[in-house]
Computed example of a mutant assay.
Amino acid sequence: MSTEAAHKTQQREVRVSREQLPLSCPLPEEEIWNLHPRVYLPIEKTGEAVCPYCGTRYILTD
């Protein structure tokens, strides 16, 4: 399995509520010492956003 294929299988999906906006990845409660730089994701209009660094898919639940 290629590195790219392995990365795609490790992608995760996270459900967030409007109370958690503005949305950033990594989320504030995650330990950031071993993660990528914080990036804010526009999720309000479409209800979904994907982090350009780690590929985490966020879904707005309400």
Rank of each mutant, 00 (worst) to 15 (best):
M1Y: 14
M1F: 11
M1Q: 09
S2Y: 01
S2I: 00
T3Y: 06
E4I: 10
E4C: 05
A5N: 09
A5G: 06
A5M: 08
A6V: 05
A6K: 10
A6R: 09
A6L: 14
H7S: 11
H7F: 12
H7R: 13
K8R: 12
K8P: 00
K8Y: 10
K8N: 12
K8H: 14
Q10D: 12
Q11W: 02
Q11T: 07
Q11A: 10
Q11C: 10
R12G: 08
E13F: 02
E13P: 00
V14Q: 02
V16H: 02
S17P: 00
R18T: 12
E19I: 02
E19M: 11
L21I: 07
L21D: 10
L23F: 03
L23S: 02
L23Q: 02
S24W: 01
S24K: 11
S24Q: 15
S24F: 00
S24D: 06
S24P: 01
C25N: 08
C25S: 14
C25R: 01
C25L: 00
L27T: 05
L27N: 01
P28L: 12
P28F: 03
P28S: 09
P28R: 09
P28K: 05
E29P: 00
E29G: 04
E30F: 13
E31T: 01
E31M: 03
I32T: 11
I32G: 15
I32R: 15
I32L: 08
W33V: 03
N34K: 11
N34D: 15
L35Y: 02
H36V: 00
H36E: 08
P37R: 05
R38M: 06
V39C: 08
V39D: 04
V39F: 04
V39S: 03
Y40A: 11
Y40P: 00
L41A: 06
L41P: 05
I43M: 10
I43W: 10
K45C: 05
K45R: 13
K45H: 11
T46W: 08
T46R: 13
T46G: 07
G47Q: 04
G47A: 09
G47D: 06
E48I: 10
E48R: 15
A49D: 06
A49L: 04
A49Q: 09
C51T: 07
C51A: 12
C51N: 08
C51Q: 07
C51M: 07
Y53V: 00
Y53K: 07
G55L: 06
T56P: 03
T56R: 05
R57H: 14
R57W: 03
Y58P: 03
I59E: 12
I59D: 02
I59Y: 09
I59K: 14
I59P: 01
I59R: 14
L60W: 03
T61E: 15
T61C: 13
D62Y: 08
